[in-house]
C-alpha cells in the first residue's frame, strides 16, 4: 500500500506542477504538453508504470479492506473512536472516488471521449491550453473536478503520514513533525490542483 501509494503521490506532485504551468500562458503550456507527447515510447512506459502502480494500489486496497471487514464479522452496537479521523475512516471511499475520477479524467483529457471542447491545433501543436480553459469555464465540470480534489485531499491527508509509519520513519522525535506532513500534503495537493481550474472558472486565465 505504502510503496505504491508513495509512487502515486510522486506522480501527483509532478502532474500538479504541470497543471500549474497554465499560468505561464498558452505557449508554455502547449509546449509542455507537446514535450510530453514527444517522449513517445518513454511516455507509454511511464503510463504503463503508472497504471501498474495504480492497479497494484487498488488491488491491495481492496484486499486489505476485505481482510479488515472479515476481521470483525460482528460490528459493535456502540463504537466510539478516540483518535482516528474522518479521512482515515473514509480511505476506501475516497479511494473509490479517486479511481472513478481517474477513469473520467483519462476519458476527458487523454482520450477526449467526452462531449467537451474539441481539441484543435495551434502553432503546430495540439492546443491543450484552450481546451483546458474553455472546459473549466463550465461550472458543472469544475464542480466535478473540485469534488474529486476534496477526495484526493482527504486521501492524502491520511495516506502520506500513514506511509511514513509503514516505512518505519515516523517514530520517536520524528513522529510529531511527520504526522503533520500528511494533512499538509493533502491540502497542498487539493489546492494546487484546483487553482488552475478555478482560475479558468473565474476568468483569471482565459483564452
Amino acid at each position: 500500500m505504502a510503496l505504491t501509494g508513495l509512487g502515486l503521490v510522486g506522480f501527483l506532485v509532478g502532474h500538479m506542477a504541470g497543471h500549474l504551468q497554465i499560468f505561464a500562458g498558452k505557449e508554455a503550456y502547449n509546449a509542455y504538453a507537446a514535450f510530453l507527447q514527444s517522449l513517445g515510447g518513454a511516455l507509454w512506459l511511464a503510463r504503463a508504470g503508472l497504471l501498474g502502480l495504480l492497479v497494484a494500489h487498488v488491488m491491495s486496497a481492496i484486499k486489505l479492506n476485505a481482510r479488515n471487514q472479515e476481521a470483525r464479522p460482528q460490528a459493535y452496537a456502540v463504537k466510539t473512536n478516540k483518535a482516528t479521523t474522518p479521512y482515515a475512516l473514509s480511505m476506501i471511499y475516497s479511494g473509490y472516488t479517486i479511481l472513478a475520477f481517474v477513469v473520467f479524467h483519462i476519458a476527458h483529457f487523454t482520450l477526449g471521449a467526452l462531449p467537451t471542447t474539441e481539441m484543435t491545433e495551434s502553432g503546430g501543436v495540439r492546443d491543450v491550453y484552450t481546451a483546458y480553459v474553455l472546459d473549466f469555464q463550465n461550472p458543472l465540470l469544475f464542480a466535478l473536478y473540485a469534488a474529486a480534489m476534496v477526495g484526493i485531499s482527504m486521501h492524502l491527508a491520511h495516506a502520506v503520514s500513514s506511509t511514513f509509519r509503514t516505512l518505519g520513519v515516523m517514530r520517536g522525535k520524528y513522529r510529531e513533525p511527520l504526522s503533520k506532513v500528511g494533512p499538509l500534503v493533502g491540502i497542498a495537493t487539493g489546492v494546487g490542483f484546483i487553482i488552475p481550474p478555478l482560475a479558468c472558472l473565474l476568468r483569471i486565465v482565459s483564452v
Binding site: R67, R72, A83, T84, H158, S161, R165, T166
Partner: peptide, 10 residues
C-alpha cells in the same frame, strides 16, 4: 485472522 493496520491510532 486479525485485520491489517491502516494507522487509525485507536
Amino acid at each position: 485472522g486479525f485485520g491489517g493496520c491502516t494507522n487509525h491510532g485507536e
